[in-house]
Amino acid sequence: MNIFRFLGDMTHLISILILLLKIYATKSCSGISLKTQELYALVFLARYLDLFTDFISVYNSVMKVVFIASSLAIVWCMRRHRVVRRSYDKELDTFRHYFLVAACLALALLVQEKFTFLEVLWAFSIYLEAVAILPQLVLLQRSGNVDNLTGQYVFFLGAYRAFYILNWIYRYFTETHFSRWISCVSGLVQTALYADFFYYYFISWKNNSKLQLPA
């Protein structure tokens, strides 16, 4: 494992911790898209079924369990927690996420490395992860004002993607048979979706002002 992959995993983990912290400390999930969180839970469940079939390392297995557990916990809190669920911006979170799921499943059936159950699910999870942030970005755009922790959450998610791209570039030059084009193309799409958000994030950071997205 190279440093970029490790930093990518760590920023991913930090983003989830920030989200849990926000929900735990403020007992509020305002500004957070339940649809995006449900998509992430689905992404992790579909991709990490290989916990039962392939063993890569203790690190990988532990991280997989952490990602599945934390994403389910967040969805549970937003849907079921007595206090937290009241702050959910339901009327702003109207993205039709089922269409994303259907489109990604169709694409996974057409384009995958091998037509087996686990490989189709794996490709599905990669495609879905690439677009899972869309409901969240739409919600932020609609609400305009972004609170600090929500801004940090999306920033660290974006950083995770950026580090994974550096990781693939590194692996491309250091490994002889590195050709995971499904991951790379999807990863590039996913990172591109953050470009706009990053732009406004850096503007607000430079001006030392509150993060605001244009309507």
């Binding site: 992959r5 995993d9 991913h12 991709r47 290989d50 392939d54 890569i56 990988n60 991280m63 997989k64 990602f67 490395e113 091998k114 087996t116 490989e119 794996w122 994974y164 990781n167 048979h177 050709s179 995971r180 991951s183």
Partner: peptide, 10 residues
């Protein structure tokens, strides 16, 4: 190479 890659990333 038609073999599926080992998915060693998260």
């Amino acid at each position: 190479n038609t073999e599926a890659e080992v998915h060693d990333e998260l």
